[in-house]
């Protein structure tokens, strides 16, 4: 197992998110975590990356207990992880080239020539080698996401985490990212965790799928197995049905009473 969550309890202030969650993410391949908004998917990535601490239980990444690490140990672990943030989080004062070179420069002592080669290789992988001089503000949504992807894999990490990588992209860019995630994972021999709400894209690249609802796993398995699930809450999510276990109407009083009381 690459990542294991054991009996993890987590809550944001008063709101509980996970209770006694057990999760095992296999090494190699792409694991997709899906679920409706607010079910705590992004929180999972923060727990794995050590940005949040569980109240109980522990998170083990590559046989290392994340909670037991001090700051230096945590930074050491993070050098083997790459992360693609939901809004790309490119450093706005640096160019595309410098953004990708950033982790390389901070963590290695490689000579400038070698860094130049490395960055160009990563850019070529995502198809943006010609855009290396542009600033993040000059990039389209799809291009920015590809740059962020290149930056996430700059140090050839063991694990890459993608937080909603398909959100807000046009169909072409979406297709590009889908392909890139698959190709990079296989070419660089990494393990990937993709958190997404896009069912079609998620199922198309997954080797293993977890479907979450209300802080717990309701279905897991290969994409085919998950898609064949007959659980009503899973079905509502996978098929995109407007009403079902997740109610259409926000809880409210009786309609007639409300209308006619309002008139007075």
């Amino acid at each position: 197992m690459l990542v294991a969550l054991n009996s993890v309890d987590f809550a944001y202030a008063e709101t509980p998110v996970y209770e006694s969650l057990d999760l095992n993410i296999p090494r190699g391949g792409i694991t997709v975590i899906m679920g409706p908004s607010g079910c705590g998917k992004s929180t999972l990535l923060s727990l794995i990356g050590g940005r949040l601490q569980p109240r109980c239980g522990n998170v083990v990444v590559d046989d290392v207990d994340v909670q037991s690490l001090d700051k230096r140990g945590l930074y050491h672990l993070r050098r083997r992880m790459g992360m693609l943030f939901q809004f790309n989080a490119l450093l706005s004062e640096l160019s595309v080239f410098e953004n990708i070179a950033f982790p390389i420069r901070e963590h290695t002592d490689l000579p400038a020539e070698l860094i130049d080669h490395l960055v160009k290789m990563k850019l070529e992988m995502v198809g943006l080698r010609g855009a290396s001089r542009l600033m993040p503000s000059e990039l389209s949504g799809g291009m920015a996401r590809r740059v962020a992807l290149a930056r996430a894999v700059a140090l050839d990490p063991v694990l890459v985490m993608y937080d909603e990588p398909f959100t807000g992209l046009d169909p072409i860019s979406k297709g590009v990212i889908v392909q890139l995630i698959r190709e990079l994972n296989d070419a660089l021999g990494m393990s990937s965790i993709v958190v997404t709400q896009d069912v079609a894209e998620g199922l198309s690249i997954a080797d293993y799928v977890f479907v979450f609802a209300a802080g717990e796993v309701i279905v897991e398995g290969t994409p085919e197995a998950v898609n064949a699930s007959s659980r009503p809450d899973a079905r509502q999510f996978l098929d995109g049905l407007p009403d079902g276990p997740v109610a259409y109407h926000y809880p409210a009083s009786d309609y007639q009473v409300d209308l006619f009381q309002g008139e007075n």
Partner: peptide, 11 residues
Amino acid sequence: TQQLDAMEMMA
């Protein structure tokens, strides 16, 4: 824009 978080994740 999560740039500070990204830096932390890049150690």
